[in-house]
Amino acid sequence: MSSKRGGETVGEEEPAAVAASSKDGRPVVVQTVDLAKRYRRGRIAVDGLDGVSITIAKGEIIGIIGPSGSGKTTLLNLVGGLDRPTHGKVLVDGFDLGGLDDGELADYRLKKIGFIFQFYNLISTLNAVENIELPMGLANVPKEEREERARELLSIVGLQLRANHMPEELSGGEQQRVAVARALSNSPSVILGDEPTGDLDSKSAKALMDLIWNLRKEKKVTFILVTHDPFVVARCDRVFSIRDGKVIGEVVPKSIGAKHASDEEKQMMDSFY
């Protein structure tokens, strides 16, 4: 695992240092190379992101922290193919997003990425199981297959009894678990969360992080979570701190996490580092 802190150090290993696997041998899922995004706010150009190079391995739970406007969400959107960089590269499973057109980017989001949001963003007119089926429907998965998989995912997130409930009939925590199931439905390489616990009470937040840890353990799912929540930070493998569009630090919150983590989690964290 390597991380370049800030644009000025990028030159050393640049450019196409595409890592096939991290230093402990696990395959690399996401790599950004000198990633930059410049916005225009009226006449003023604002750096949303300014030379970020990070590498994330399969099965990692990554936290991204930083003050508002620091570029956290921009980084997430670039990795998720919702936005295009003004400079630099995003590689997912070794594949460069740079050359994709709008339709291909949509396809990339559909198959390689799962999104979870602070306010869940379930489709309000569809019930839980239909929401989970939706990405599979977009990917033209046959009806029976997607129904079966949606039910399976619903039981993985512990909501099999809520299958036919509408989003408004579910608690925030339940909605977020449906959102996680929806994000998992096309078996993505990475799940991106933008403040996933931002609207949850601490009990639901804990349940969500338990679910995330479990998914990582059972299915080797990779997570990148933008967060303000110290509790989430504590349970990430690594946390990148971003300020003014640059990565200013990488923290391994083992010591913090140790206080909260279960024995099993501690053991797992130890095995990773």
């Binding site: 949509a106 989001r109 999104f115 306010f119 379930l122």
Partner: peptide
């Protein structure tokens, strides 16, 4: 926001 979410999860134009 739902439309944004639809696009995020991969719905094409």
């Amino acid at each position: 926001r739902e439309i944004g979410a639809l696009k995020a999860i991969g719905a094409k134009k």
